[in-house]
């Protein structure tokens, strides 16, 4: 997997990742500096992480993929397996994005608020990075055109961050006469951003606000089984698109 080295080298040269790190560092430093209550900072940080991490992950990965097209073409004529090549690209991207996240958010969180909620924020941030990079690889593998690919990934981000929740809200209005606790659990699992948010919020005791739904959530995600379920679903969210990306990539013509 020597290729990862060249992928990383290429990413670091673009300076985008350094800007991302600096931005995250700035935001978390500002939040921890202005807010004396660490758990409140975590909450504010959560709001930012849930928007920025998926957005940057999905857009950065897509751009990187299209920019690496030449490199990929060059590598394809070499005795290198396609799966290895794509995995190297994937690992290179998530390694650098995760490193940026861990420096930008991880360090301040570990310094100022290394408790359950802080750690779970880091876990879900990393998982969201994986998930949205993986989705981006899938989209980019399918879509030949760069502009179209970036457009599709932006739409997907918009869908997961905003539209999905509107749909859920709409469904709640429509089916408000039915018991929805279990359904809500399902709805949450179908959107990695929601899953990440609920995962962190349950560590933050906000669940007491959620009344009966919260109790169901807490009961479910609070148990070891539920925790594994949440992590498992998030990992599935990362693995499945990557698997599909590899499948498309293996059959792709260059």
């Amino acid at each position: 997997m020597k290729i990862i080295r060249y992928v990383l080298y290429d990413i670091l040269r673009s300076r985008m990742i350094i800007g991302y790190t600096a931005f995250l560092l700035l935001v978390s430093a500002a939040l921890f500096a202005t807010e004396t209550n660490a758990s409140k900072s975590i909450l504010n940080l959560l709001n930012i992480v849930l928007i920025v991490v998926p957005l940057v992950s999905i857009v950065f990965t897509t751009i990187h993929y299209y920019n690496s097209y030449q490199f990929i073409e060059l590598m394809l004529a070499q005795p290198i397996e396609r799966m290895k090549l794509l995995l190297s690209e994937f690992l290179g991207v998530i390694l650098s994005l995760s490193a940026a996240f861990l420096i930008g958010i991880g360090l301040p969180v570990l310094l100022f608020s290394a408790d359950g909620s802080g750690i779970s924020l880091l876990i879900s941030g990393i998982l969201l990075t994986f998930i949205f990079s993986s989705i981006a690889f899938w989209v980019a593998a399918i879509t030949q055109d760069k502009a179209k690919g970036i457009g599709v990934t932006l739409l997907l981000w918009f869908y997961f961050s905003l539209i999905y929740d509107f749909i859920v809200l709409f469904l709640m209005f429509t089916f408000s006469d039915y018991p929805l606790e279990k359904a809500m659990l399902g709805f949450t699992a179908l959107n990695p951003i929601d899953l990440g948010r609920v995962f962190v919020m349950l560590q933050m005791d906000v669940s007491a606000l959620m009344g009966y739904t919260g109790a169901v959530y807490k009961q479910f995600f609070g148990s070891a089984l539920g925790m594994f379920f949440a992590l498992g679903v998030m990992i599935m969210w990362a693995v499945v698109p990557l698997f599909l990306a590899i499948r498309v990539f293996k059959k792709k013509d260059f």
Binding site: D10, S68, A77
Partner: peptide
Amino acid sequence: CDYRRDMGYMPQIGRYPDNM
């Protein structure tokens, strides 16, 4: 993919990472 060890390829339009 090992057979490609025995191959040298010169593309019609060589495309290489820009910043290398």
